[in-house]
Every structure is written in structure tokens, then in C-alpha cells.
Design a protein around this nucleic acid. Structure first.
Length: 501
RNA sequence: CGGGGUGUGGCGCAGCCUGGCAGCGCGACUGGUUUGGGACCAGUAGGUCGCAGGUUCGAAUCCUGUCACCCCGACCA
């Protein structure tokens, strides 16, 4: 038997983290590069994870009073021009549609027909504030129309110069919430509410601990008054912005005439918010839990929570083993976890057992059950947890079924605990610039640094030189007196700093 | 968009320096042997060497141009 590497994924995380990431995506069959630059094909296993995220998030949005709608993929170019900062932020990465017809090219092939040039170019949406804002302006007349609480599931395009599977692709899938409110306070409350929804989802569904906080001025969404984010720490010590919620003030309302008559009959501008998470969450999920054997999925999001692998030598054994597997599947499906029937898959493909087993290890299925004639005879199962590794152990069938949901809950909790511990171990309170520089030295592991700071050009310049970014000012940060490590100016709060994706 | 690198069967690569029959590994398929585990043996299929031009008796190999992708920056969810 040929000796294999000790781990299913090569290189390991320690050897080359970016390459390890690519290999995990490939080995787990999540996605692949496409024929279009910067765009990926999301394969069934990867898309099923996204569908689970969608289902759960969608429920949370609806539970907080939002409704889904759909707006056009195309945005007239002039719409983008209305909010000055917004243009500046997105103009450099827009795909532009200029023609509506092709014709044969005299040199062969096709070309856009010169006669079919659009009067006004259309932008493929990089985000939909402008087109949705313009629509809201028509919807809104009276204070009685408020609040408007809308979410859209969509694809957007940002022509990024450098792309990475799930983390940054030219086209990506996301949801964008857009709301309109009568008062500033109500809009601010909405912004924070949705940030909390995201934090709840990250921690309780993805088992990914996050820090909720407010972005500094330079990291703010173009056109926003305040941007809040949830920040997670990946295993390589880099931070990932996993979700954002923006308080847009009246910037877009004024740019797009989103106004209404208030109770006193005066026409006033409304207050708007927007918030979103994307398929980037899948990248965060991968980099939070996966190990050198591939993907590790939290049970809440796993397309299959249990995979059953029948083992047999001949047709007679096959019949017995498969019948046993199918009844086991039915028993497991009668159990519930996270308010849903267990998702159980039998893999009866004509492949060697070992290879099949490793495929499911690399795909990250939380519980693997191997059933052979011996288990059938003994009325047992041979089960292994993905999160703890190892070969697994024999368990009486009834006991396994009765405890399956609890085991999944244990795995979910164990993943969150493990990730939280890793995050906390890679977190430091730093009080001087020298410490800060040492913490983020090329050879250092990096991580999160809580520091006193005063936002401004001086800090930005120093951070840029160190390739470190201000992630956010944590909401739960206590007020404490200190001095900015970059400028020495007095500061009342610590911010979180890290290298970032 | 700046710096570096790579384009050769489905995938991963060698060959290029020094021009001379297009190779290897994995995968696929067929047959056999195996079977509580990423198997073994034998055989089969599959490539005008990214594209265009040039040099040459002859180009995967040398020259020019071009396109794509990857990595490192800058920009960004």
C-alpha cells in the first residue's frame, strides 16, 4: 500500500496558508475557477452550504419584519453619480453595458453593433443603494408608509483586480437589506439590530466568533454616515470582515429625494440604512474551522450532517447492509436538530471504502457512519466525528440514533469553543507602538490587537506602512482613558487592529 | 495597474538552456486479483505543446508580438 501524506490536504496550514485554502476548496468540491476571469463556479456542495445560510438568514430577516423583493441587475450610470462619495468608492470597479446587440465582425466573430450603442450606459450593480433608493423615492409619500423594510437576495459585480475563491470574486452572491425610516434614531436602531442579527448568525449558526464594532472613517462604506461590521479572526491571524450594516443618514435620501410628509404636514427627508452579507461567509467558514484534512462544517450548515458508508464484499452482504443503512437513515431522519430533520446521506457509490471515507472527511461532514456486516450482525454502528478526527468507535445502534442530535449540538458547540479559544489566544492588548510593530512583524503570527488610537491621517500612514488595518471600535469596548499609540493624543476607547483579507 | 511566474491529454508536471518520432504520474475506461478502508496487475482511450507571426531543411524548444491565469503589491466585501 502506498504511503500517503499524513494529512489529506497538502500543503498544510502551517506550510502555506493561502495554498492550503485553495486546496480545501478544491478537495471539498465547493467551487472551481470558471472561464470568466475572476468568477467562480459554485458546485453543489458549496452551493448547498450557501442555501443553508440563506434559509437561516432569511428566517431571521423575516422575524425582524423585513420582506424580500427584487430590483434590476442594471443601474443607469447617472444614478451612481448622485451621491458623490458613493461614485468615488465604486466607479473604479464597475462593469459597464454599452450596447444591446451584436453583429458579425468583418474580421470574423462578433462585435457590439455600433448602431446599437445605448444612449446611457448601464452599470451592472456593484450594490443597489441607488436603484433601490430611486424606487423608494416613488414608494414613499407619507409617514404612514414608513418604515420600509426590504431585503434582496442577488448577485453583484465588482471588477476586483485580484480575486480569491469566495473571499473576493468579481461576481458574488449576497443579500442586501435596504430600509427607510422616519427618524434618525429609528434608522440607527435598525442598523444596530441587523448588526446583531449578523453577529448572532455568525456565532450560533457558523460557530464563528465575531467582534461587533464601528468602522473608522477610512473604512466606512462610501456614502455612509456610520458603518458597523462583524469581524472574525481566521486561523492565519488575519481578520475577515464578515458582514456590514450601514447607517446612511440622509445622504442618499437627499441625493435621491427620498422624502415624505410628516405628521405635521411638512415634507422632510427620510433616514436610510443598508446591510449585507455575501458568499464571503463561506470563505470565513472554511478558514475558521477547517484543518489539514480539509473542510470541517458546523452541523447547522452542513448539507449532510451524517453520511452513512455501507461496506460489503458481495451482493448478499450488499442487500443486508443496504437495508440496515436505509432503516438507519430513516430513524435518523425522524430526529430533529436545529428545528429541522437530520440531513442524512447514504453513499453507495461503487468506490473503494477508503477513498469514499476520505472524500467525506475532506467535505467536512460532521458525523461519518460506517456500516459493515459485523455492525449489522451486532446491531451497532461505527461512528466518527469530523471535528475530533480519529477513526471513530462502535456504538449500539439505538444509542447512536437517540444521541445523534445531541452529538451534533456538541460538535456545533465544540467548534465555537475551539474557534473562540483560538481567537482569544491570538488577541493582545497593546500599549506602545514598538509592541505593536513587534506584534505585526513579518515573522510574528499576528492576530488581533486592542489599542488606544485617534483616527486620522497620521495613524493611517503608519498602519499602511505596517500593512495593518483598523478593523473596528468594538461596541462592547469599555470607556477607559489612554493615549493613541500612533500620535500620543488622548483616547477614550481601544480599537481592534489586524492584518485583513 | 506595477513587479515576478506559468501556459504541454480531464488534473498535476517533465522536456525548452544545447531545435531532430510528444513523455511521465494521477484520473477515466476494460478485464482480472483484492476488500473494515486513500489497493494491485494487465490493457485501452485521450494532446496539431495558449494564440499569431518570424527564423530554420526541420520549432513544444530560438526570436517578436499577443492573450489568459497564478503569486506579491496597490485597490476593495
Amino acid at each position: 500500500m502506498p504511503k500517503r501524506a499524513q494529512h489529506a490536504i497538502s500543503p498544510t496550514r502551517a506550510e502555506n496558508y493561502p495554498e492550503w485554502y485553495q486546496q480545501v476548496v478544491k478537495a471539498a468540491d465547493l467551487a472551481e475557477t470558471s472561464d470568466v476571469r475572476g468568477c467562480m463556479v459554485i458546485k453543489p456542495w458549496g452551493y448547498a452550504i450557501w442555501e443553508n445560510m440563506q434559509r437561516i438568514l432569511d428566517g431571521m430577516f423575516k422575524a425582524t419584519g423585513h420582506e424580500n423583493a427584487y430590483f434590476p441587475l442594471f443601474i443607469p450610470m447617472s444614478f451612481l453619480e448622485k451621491e458623490a462619495e458613493h461614485v468615488e468608492g465604486f466607479a473604479k470597479e464597475c462593469a459597464v453595458v454599452t450596447h444591446h446587440r451584436l453583429e458579425p465582425n468583418p474580421d470574423g466573430g462578433l462585435r457590439p453593433a455600433p448602431a446599437a450603442e445605448l444612449d446611457e450606459p448601464l452599470i451592472v450593480r456593484p450594490t443597489s443603494e441607488t436603484i433601490i433608493g430611486a424606487t423608494f423615492a416613488r414608494w414613499l409619500e407619507s409617514y404612514r408608509d414608513l418604515p420600509i423594510l426590504i431585503n434582496q437576495w442577488a448577485n453583484v459585480v465588482r471588477w476586483e483586480l485580484r480575486t480569491r475563491m469566495f473571499l473576493r470574486t468579481a461576481e458574488f452572491l449576497w443579500q442586501e437589506g435596504h430600509t427607510v425610516h422616519a427618524t434618525e434614531q429609528e434608522a440607527r436602531d435598525e442598523t444596530r439590530l441587523m448588526l446583531d442579527v449578523y453577529a448572532d448568525f455568525a456565532q450560533n449558526t457558523m460557530a464563528m466568533p465575531v467582534i461587533r464594532g464601528e468602522k473608522t472613517a477610512s473604512e466606512r462604506f462610501p456614502g455612509a454616515v456610520a458603518t458597523y461590521s462583524i469581524e472574525a479572526l481566521m486561523q492565519d491571524g488575519k481578520a475577515l470582515q464578515a458582514g456590514t450594516s450601514h447607517f446612511l443618514g440622509q445622504n442618499f435620501a437627499k441625493a435621491q429625494e427620498i422624502k415624505f410628509q410628516d405628521r405635521s404636514g411638512h415634507e422632510v427627508y427620510a433616514w436610510t440604512t443598508s446591510w449585507g452579507v455575501s458568499t464571503r461567509l463561506v470563505g470565513g467558514l472554511i478558514m475558521t474551522h477547517s484543518d489539514d484534512d480539509g473542510l470541517v462544517l458546523p452541523p447547522t450548515l452542513a448539507p449532510a450532517q451524517v453520511v452513512i458508508l455501507p461496506i460489503y464484499k458481495n451482493d448478499q452482504e450488499r442487500g443486508q447492509v443496504l437495508a440496515y443503512c436505509e432503516s438507519l437513515q430513516q430513524e435518523l431522519q425522524a430526529e430533529c436538530y436545529a428545528e429541522q430533520s437530520l440531513r442524512v446521506k447514504i453513499d453507495d457509490r461503487d468506490l473503494r471504502g477508503g477513498e469514499k471515507k476520505w472524500q467525506w472527511v475532506k467535505r467536512g461532514v460532521p458525523l461519518r457512519v460506517e456500516i459493515g456486516p459485523r455492525d449489522v450482525a451486532a446491531g451497532g454502528v461505527f461512528a466518527a466525528r469530523r471535528d475530533v478526527g480519529g477513526k471513530g468507535q462502535g456504538v449500539p445502534r439505538g444509542e447512536f440514533v437517540a444521541q445523534a442530535a445531541q452529538t451534533l449540538a456538541d460538535i456545533q458547540q465544540a467548534l465555537l469553543d475551539r474557534a473562540t479559544q483560538a481567537r482569544d489566544q491570538a488577541t493582545a492588548r497593546i500599549n506602545t507602538l514598538a509592541e505593536f510593530e513587534a506584534y505585526f512583524a513579518e515573522s510574528a503570527p499576528g492576530g488581533l490587537a486592542y489599542c488606544h488610537f485617534v483616527d486620522g491621517p497620521e495613524m493611517e500612514a503608519q498602519l499602511k506602512a505596517l500593512k495593518v488595518t483598523a478593523r473596528c471600535v468594538p461596541l462592547e469596548a469599555p470607556v477607559e482613558s489612554g493615549s493613541c499609540i500612533f500620535t500620543g493624543q488622548p483616547s477614550q476607547r481601544r480599537g481592534v487592529f489586524a492584518r485583513a483579507y
